[in-house]
Design a binder for these strands. Structure first.
Lengths: 133, 133
DNA sequence: CTAGGTGCAAATTTTTTGCACATGC
DNA sequence: GCATGTGCAAAAAATTTGCACCTAG
């Protein structure tokens, strides 16, 4: 990934951390993950780079969950499940009819609005939280 | 609506303001709307009541758009369109296959997660912003 | 030398909360 | 009187930003 935009070591590390996890982490999570190995990393840098990734299409936002933005380096189109109790975010790697082109057309015709992307989130209680009571 | 929970005058006014608009407003929008007619209204009260509405099922969150939570008193299940430029939120009153029960079952079986609700958001550029350039 | 990246801390922004007071029953 | 609602301002929490420095090319 280093040559794509001449990534700095820190930018690379942040991208690595983000793409290696399936937790759809917050900026803080990435920061805490990397801090031990990169002691002079600052939280501001993590935020700045996550913003860069969104801009250049290397990552996207899953949305704000419990007050914190969650990021995902998996750019494939897929829904997510968010647990209302522990706030974990799970991939739902099944693209059913959610990319229905007819609906995009409908929105264009009805509102003149051009759809660029969409986000499907299911909310509920995950297995672990269900079992714990 | 007044007798449902013995709403205070302010709570009623906040609910009224929320249900009368289709803008999916922020707390601040509601506050600014009501402030002229209710000079001793405080922003904290608006926040507190919006939270109450979510808890008792009179309103729901559309999500955080551009850093601010957007609320909706229309409890019917429908997707939204969010303009990436002006951040307006539009109802998409067409329930296609987005409530696909098969997908709920799939999530239950695959992850043991119980889906309680879902949220579908389309992102793009609205008509007005498209026309303005 | 220049442009881009970063640490650090302060600032900004949004939302929550503690506390004293008010109000309705 | 009690439970609930509220104003006010302070606090909390998340994110952004100004500025000086630093490093790669």
């Amino acid at each position: 990934m280093q040559t794509k935009r001449n990534f700095s070591a820190k930018r690379e590390a942040i991208y690595e951390a983000l793409s290696e996890t399936k937790t759809h982490p917050t900026a803080e999570w990435v920061y805490n993950k990397l801090k031990p190995s990169i002691p002079d990393l600052s939280l501001g840098t993590v935020y700045r780079n996550l913003t860069v990734f969104k801009e250049i299409g290397l990552a996207k936002s899953v949305g704000v969950v419990n007050g914190q933005e969650r990021f995902d380096a998996d750019m494939s189109v897929h829904p997510h499940f968010v647990c209302n109790k522990c706030f974990k975010v799970i991939d739902v790697p099944k693209s059913t009819n959610f990319t229905d082109p007819a609906l995009y057309d409908y929105i264009k015709k009805e509102y003149g609005a051009v759809v660029e992307s969409h986000n499907v989130i299911f909310y509920g209680i995950c297995r672990e939280c269900s079992e714990k009571g």
